[in-house]
Design a protein around this nucleic acid. Structure first.
Length: 306
DNA sequence: AGCGGTCAAGTTGAT
DNA sequence: ATCAACTTGACCGCT
């Protein structure tokens, strides 16, 4: 049984997440306008749209939704950063977070986070690690408020010595709050870390591996899809989460790591057909249109979709 | 109304 | 050396 997941955005449905820039906030400040007023407006809109997103997923049989890192824009910026309680409508926002949490729980829509590429726990630079930890704690706060059980990141850079890099990852993991640690997962990527390199880290830290089969096809390690699937499943103490996408120009073309608008059903590994229950996030540029199309196709082909 | 320039951040690999 | 890619274009301000 597969729970399909949508990532962050909508193509056709009128659900949008707003953002702003630190630079614009600083120009407001110079004009004597409180940047928190502008942020307040954007965040109000974002939380409303997050509820719409959860409802859309529930109404359309999409069992999981990945939440954009910019839900609270600029939250951890060194100059323009702020706290939820600094916002004029903070108490209203806390109620709206709670409303989304309850809606997702009631409608069984699993919520996840995927911090962006700037979050690197393996970096040799202390400033990078500190900013990464701040971002993870920000996402952890949201995850707790929303009942999300996954904060998924990559291994980060290799720096010519992946063993040392993953040791730094493990060491820095200890600096995270329990809120983040209990939700943190690591995903194999398309350039640096394969499943076989990450599995020992997962076992050492007791964190799950988010197995991305598209990345694994781009960056192989001698493990078969079946082996990687089995090993990844064994790291999960909750419902497993995997990723899939299709290459923009087809396999055998340049840059297979670029994502296609849709998922080619041929790319679904048959090795996944008898997994009892897992979440599969669909990384496709056509967003909800791609997920709904895939859902139809999978049903026709005899896959059991939630 | 449409469109161009701009935006906090890390790391890698292609050009 | 520059740039696009990555989970993802959105925003303001000028014409």
């Amino acid at each position: 049984m597969i729970r399909l997941g949508l990532c962050c955005l909508f193509l056709e449905a009128p659900i949008r997440f707003r953002t702003t820039t630190a630079k614009y906030l600083s120009t407001l400040l110079k004009k004597g306008i409180d940047p928190l007023e502008h942020l307040n407006e954007i965040i109000g809109s974002n939380l409303h749209n997050l509820l719409l997103a959860v409802q859309f997923c529930s109404d359309n049989g999409i069992g999981s939704f990945r939440i954009n890192s910019g839900l609270l824009p600029i939250y951890t910026h060194p100059e323009q950063g702020y706290h939820l309680d600094d916002l004029p409508d903070s108490s209203k926002f806390r109620m709206e977070f709670e409303k989304v949490r309850k809606e997702a729980l009631l409608k069984k829509v699993r919520l996840t986070f995927h911090p962006d590429q700037f979050v690197v726990l393996s970096s040799p630079r202390e400033d990078v690690v500190e900013k990464s930890i701040a971002d993870l704690e920000y996402q952890g706060m949201m995850a707790k408020l929303l009942g999300a059980d996954v904060i998924n990141i990559h291994g980060g850079g290799g720096y010519g010595d992946k063993v040392s890099a993953l040791k730094r990852f493990a060491k820095n993991f200890e600096r995270l709050s329990k809120t983040v640690q209990s939700r943190l997962t690591v995903e194999n990527d398309d350039k640096t870390y394969t499943p076989s390199e990450l599995l020992p880290l997962c076992r050492e830290l007791g964190i799950p591996l988010v197995y991305d089969v598209h990345h694994h096809r781009c960056l192989q390690d001698g493990m078969s899809i079946l082996e990687a699937t089995k090993e990844a499943l064994s790291t999960w103490n909750r419902e497993p989460l995997f990723h899939i996408s299709s290459p923009r120009g087809g396999w055998g073309m340049a840059k297979p790591q670029f994502h296609h608008d849709f998922l080619d059903i041929e790319d679904m590994p048959m090795e996944w057909k008898n997994i009892s229950k897992f979440t599969l996030e669909i990384e496709a540029k056509a967003k909800e249109v791609a997920v709904l199309k895939l859902k139809k196709q999978l049903k026709i082909e005899g896959w059991i979709i939630e």
